[in-house]
C-alpha cells in the first residue's frame, strides 16, 4: 500500500468521537455564521470529516470518491456566492447613489444584511438541537450502524433540516441540504451501495451543488438590494 494511502487509512481507526466533535463544530458554524465564507470553509471541513467516517465503512477508493465530490462542490458554491455578493454590493451602491441624488444628502451607510433570525436565536436553537441529539441517541439509537457514527448521522440530518426550515435562500438552504445529504450518505454506506451506487451518489452531490449555485445566482436576478 502506498504510504499516503496507509496514512489516510489509519485515520479510519480514529474513534467516532473526534469526528463527531468536529462535525458538531462545522455544522454549527454552517448554521450560525452569517458570512458565507465561514460557512463554505466549514462545509469543506465537514466533507473531509465525513470522508474520514466513510473510511470506516467503505473501501478507500470509494471513500475518496465521496470526499472528492464534496470537495468539488465547495468551489461551485464559492463562485456563485462571490458573484451574488458582488452583484448585491453593486446594486446597493446604485441604490445609495439614487437615494443620495434624490435627497441631496451624503451617501447613506451600506445596510447590514438582513436575516430573518439573529445569531443568538440560531445559537440557542443549535444548543437545543444538541440536547435533542443527546436524548435521541440514547433513547432511539440509529440501527444498523456503529454506535459512534450514528450520532454524526443524526446531527448532520438535524442541522440540515434546521437550516432548511430557517431560510428559503438558496445558498444557506442549499448548504443545509448538502449537510443533510452528507449525514444520509454515512448511513447509506451500511446498505453496501457498491461502485455504481457510490458513483451515483457522488454525481448527486455534484449536481446538487451545481443546482444550488445556479439557484443562488438566479435568486439574485430580481434586482433586490440586500
Amino acid at each position: 500500500m502506498l504510504p499516503w494511502k496507509e496514512l489516510i487509512s489509519q485515520l479510519a481507526h480514529l474513534s467516532g468521537l473526534p469526528a463527531l466533535i468536529g462535525l458538531v463544530c462545522t455544522a454549527s458554524v454552517i448554521a450560525i455564521a452569517r458570512d458565507w465564507r465561514f460557512e463554505l470553509w466549514a462545509l469543506l471541513a465537514q466533507y473531509i470529516l465525513v470522508g474520514v467516517l466513510h473510511l470506516r465503512m467503505l473501501p478507500f477508493e470509494l471513500a475518496l470518491v465521496r470526499v472528492l465530490a464534496g470537495v468539488l462542490v465547495c468551489p461551485m458554491l464559492y463562485w456563485a456566492a462571490r458573484w451574488v455578493e458582488s452583484e448585491r454590493a453593486h446594486k446597493a451602491q446604485i441604490e445609495r447613489q439614487q437615494l443620495a441624488e434624490q435627497g441631496q444628502v451624503p451617501l447613506p451607510p451600506l445596510p447590514w444584511p438582513v436575516r430573518p433570525t439573529s445569531g443568538m436565536f440560531v445559537l440557542l436553537a443549535v444548543l437545543l438541537l444538541g440536547m435533542v441529539l443527546y436524548s435521541v441517541s440514547s433513547s432511539f439509537p440509529l440501527p444498523f450502524i456503529d454506535a459512534d457514527i450514528a450520532p454524526a448521522c443524526v446531527w448532520l440530518a438535524l442541522i440540515g433540516l434546521f437550516m432548511l426550515v430557517l431560510t428559503s435562500e438558496p445558498l444557506p438552504a442549499g448548504m443545509g441540504l448538502l449537510t443533510m445529504v452528507s449525514g444520509f450518505g454515512l448511513f447509506f454506506d451500511v446498505m453496501g451501495p457498491g461502485l455504481v451506487g457510490i458513483g451515483v451518489l457522488s454525481a448527486l452531490d455534484l449536481i446538487m451543488g451545481l443546482s444550488i449555485s445556479y439557484l443562488a445566482i438566479v435568486r439574485d436576478l430580481t434586482g433586490e438590494v440586500l
Binding site: S168, P170, S211, Y214, V218, R219, D220, L221, T222, G223
Partner: peptide, 17 residues
C-alpha cells in the same frame, strides 16, 4: 432545478422546494 428556475428572474423557490 435548471428547468424550473431561469424562466423568471429571481424565481428559485419552486426549484429549491
Amino acid at each position: 432545478a435548471f428547468v424550473f428556475a431561469g424562466g423568471r428572474p429571481g424565481a428559485s423557490i419552486g426549484a429549491l422546494r
